[in-house]
Design a protein around this nucleic acid. Structure first.
Length: 362
DNA sequence: ACGGCGATGTGCTATGATAC
DNA sequence: GTATCATAGCACATCGCCGT
């Protein structure tokens, strides 16, 4: 049984109204995500027409970040996965009619004389015009979730929220139901809580438009039910772009690696470089490196590395008017990233401001 | 029960060597 | 240029230990 079916089955008395859901069968590997990214980016340049498109395999390798590799097997098996991956959706139309359907991303893929020929599925082209659906597909594909359970839980929360048509929900779930949704029946609560529940909620809070808190209810000594308090973040930029069509290369594909390299070149240690590259995009980092260099030349910087880290975190190079809501040096993105569950925007801003006063950059 | 640390096992990925 | 194989390295899941 798929997770979706389980979720739908979960508690039909509680969830009265059906609503839009999207489900993708497989979980993609990194290469498959990248290849899909490449394909969407490429067909975006051709305005998503349903004709067969072709791009050189050499370029595909490059875009996948495999400069040295000649192993077409990687591409072949990724195409195979894309073709065999079924997207399933269930939408409530404006006129309350329900639409259900399944399709695949691409309808064909070929490797012919050094070129990759593919045909985008016409159904998907239609769906791309439906923003909410597309956003969800994008999230499913691109999601930065590291834990496999996070996605299942996110789907579950989103589903519960939209069924209730609310932005805030207090959801009580019996522990064994939660186990059956997540497929963790035999995990003792001790490990379940530490390795599944908490990390997943942490990921949902930091990567999605949801804020989730949880507490436990006991029956006797053992945990019986979990209470989730779910609310929608007010400000969450849900980008619909897979990649920037203006750019020659999809930045998302190589940006993080490039950013790490360049940060290392500027003397930051690997862990800081990794953390920054994860949180900020390549352009943002480059812009702030440039800004830092400028300030160094102007003699305004005592500690170059510390300044650089701070510049990136607070986007010194950014145009100030973009951050109207910044609280004296605390940017919006920073607040969203570091806000504690349940904390209001203003409270978080004040707290982070205080924290920063005491934090020391090496 | 919590949460940090680390050991272990497993599966995946990148890459080079080799042969066709 | 293409296909196959081997392998080192990495990421992740699981779970034990331990101080709190």
């Amino acid at each position: 049984m798929t997770e979706l079916e389980l979720i739908t089955k979960l508690d039909e008395t509680v969830f009265l109204k059906p609503t839009g859901t999207v489900h993708i069968t497989n979980s993609f590997s990194l290469i498959e995500r990248k290849l899909l990214n490449v394909i969407v980016w490429h067909s975006q340049k051709h305005r998503f027409t349903s004709e067969e498109h072709s791009l050189p395999i050499r370029d595909v390798f490059y875009l996948l970040g495999l400069k040295e590799s000649r192993n077409q097997d990687v591409i072949k098996s990724a195409i195979r996965t894309l073709l065999s991956t079924i997207i399933e959706w269930n939408i409530l139309e404006a006129d309350r009619a329900q639409e259900w359907g399944v399709c695949t991303f691409i309808s064909s893929g070929k490797l012919v004389s050094g070129k990759l020929n593919y045909r985008l599925n016409p159904e998907i082209i239609e769906k791309i015009n439906n923003p909410t659906l597309f956003a969800k597909i994008q999230l499913l594909i691109q999601s930065k979730f590291k834990k496999k359970h996070t996605l299942v839980m996110y789907e579950f929360f989103i589903d519960a929220l939209s069924r209730k048509r609310k932005d805030y929900l207090r959801l009580v779930v019996k522990l064994d139901k939660l186990h059956s949704i997540l497929g963790t029946e035999n995990t003792p609560f001790k490990f379940f809580n530490r390795d599944v529940l908490k990390p997943s909620i942490r990921e949902i809070n930091s990567h999605t438009d949801l804020d989730v808190n949880n507490e436990t209810l006991r029956l006797g000594r053992s945990i019986y039910e979990i209470v989730f308090e779910i609310s929608k973040k007010k400000m969450f930029p849900m980008s619909l772009d897979f990649v920037d069509p203006e750019e020659g290369l999809p930045p998302s594909i190589q940006g993080e690696k490039k950013a790490i390299d360049i940060l290392k070149e500027h003397g930051l240690n690997l862990s800081i470089a990794k953390a920054l590259s994860k949180s900020f995009d390549y352009e943002h980092i480059i812009a702030n490196i440039a800004y830092t260099e400028l300030q160094v030349i102007n003699g305004k910087v005592k500690n170059r590395k510390a300044f650089l880290v701070k510049a990136i975190k607070e986007n010194y190079s950014g145009n100030e008017t973009c951050n109207e809501e910044s609280y004296s040096g605390v940017t919006r993105s920073e607040i969203e990233k570091n806000a504690r569950p349940g904390e209001s925007y203003n409270a978080a801003a004040e707290r982070i401001k205080e924290d920063k006063k005491h934090s020391i950059y090496e």
